[in-house]
Simulated scan of single mutants.
Amino acid sequence: MYFASDNAGPAHPKVMEALMKANEGYATGYGGDAIMDEVRAQIRDVFEAPEAAVYLVINGTSANSILLGTMTQPWETVFCSDWAHIHKDEGHAPEFYTGSKLTLVPSTAGKMSVDDLQHAILGEGNRGVHGSQRGPISITQVTEFGTIYTLDEIKALTATAQEFGLKTHLDGARFANAMVALDCSAAEMTWKAGIDTVSFGGTKNGAVAVEACVIFDPDLAWEFELRRKRGGHLLSKHRFLSAQMNAYLTDDLWLDLARAANAQCVQLAEGLRGHDGADILFEPQANMIFFNMTRQEHKRMLDAGAVYYVENGDPYAGDPEERLMGRLVTDWSITAACVTQFLDLLRG
């Protein structure tokens, strides 16, 4: 009954097999390995972008931060949701790599609106040399509340960015979960919707540690390479990144894993809706659920072996009737039996 995070789930056996195979013999380092040539072609095919620049790093923080650093000057500001992952969970790494600041845009269920984004943009870049200049927009997809921007919502946000001559980055740590939920193509969710760069996640969806940085403007490619090296994220034994991504993409494994995670989330949400003591806060759209329940109910579940995060309080100290927010996340390896066990325990 482990629902704390999709980061905590196992890597898929095919990814592990690929790593073992890549460990045989010798290979050129720093991304010069033959597997990376195949990965580059795979990702270009997935995104229907034959000219895209493709690079691999070990985690989402480095992917987001180096991409944003490539898109941002130190005197500019990055616009993002007040619940964006780059704001809430990356320890100021985006600010460190860009040398700039983040301007937080109010959100509803983790999503920015066009009006709020426009208001935030208009609030910057108008104080001359004394204030921040306008920089790129970053969209978290899936959001930190498990919600998803529709294609039309992404297009509207990128159109707003373009009105001001700004570029847009997509933080896609859960890219596959969003894409299968929207039943769209990778191209439709990115460059066809006005996205300029993408952090294409693998770690949360069955890889060990690999994310792809996809850049649709080739003019940004060399600067990204320099920043990746300067930032300490160009791996010498790069083949082990390449092998993971190669296995992840082969035969659409990445889509199968995301579908499995999303499907178990649906079952979990249906069971929660049938329990009077639990209130789902945001309509689950991918593989995350946020819900309210009394402190004593959280404690009972956790003591019985359920593993998940309680977000806004200590489940073991305080008023037993106070309602606290919990977060449940399903990954590819969660089984129907595990979901049933959790729901049976919830019902007492």
Rank of each mutant, 00 (worst) to 15 (best):
Q133N: 08
D196S: 13
Y316M: 03
V208L: 09
H130K: 11
G274P: 07
L151C: 02
G206K: 01
A243L: 07
E188P: 04
G110R: 02
L67Q: 11
V266I: 14
K111W: 06
M179L: 13
F224E: 02
I148A: 10
A27K: 06
L253H: 02
T98Q: 02
Y248W: 14
K204F: 00
Q42A: 09
D256P: 01
E211S: 03
W75T: 10
G206L: 05
A263K: 12
S100I: 03
L241W: 06
S107H: 13
M36E: 06
V54G: 03
Q244R: 00
R323K: 14
G135K: 01
T143L: 05
F79V: 00
R273F: 12
D89N: 15
A93H: 12
A269F: 11
F290R: 14
N262A: 02
S113T: 15
P50R: 01
D276V: 07
F96Q: 00
G313T: 05
M325I: 15
F342Y: 14
N246Q: 11
V105C: 03
V129T: 10
H92G: 11
R40A: 13
Y2A: 12
M20F: 12
Q244D: 10
T203F: 02
H87V: 08
V208M: 07
A304T: 10
G206A: 07
G110T: 02
A11G: 12
V307I: 14
K237F: 08
Y248R: 00
G135Q: 03
L117V: 00
D171M: 06
A306R: 02
A18T: 07
L56W: 02
I154N: 05
H238W: 07
K101T: 12
R273A: 09
G348D: 14
E124R: 14
T103N: 07
L234T: 13
N23M: 12
L157Y: 02
A120M: 02
R228H: 11
D196V: 06
K101G: 10
L220F: 05
E297M: 07
H298P: 03
I58G: 09
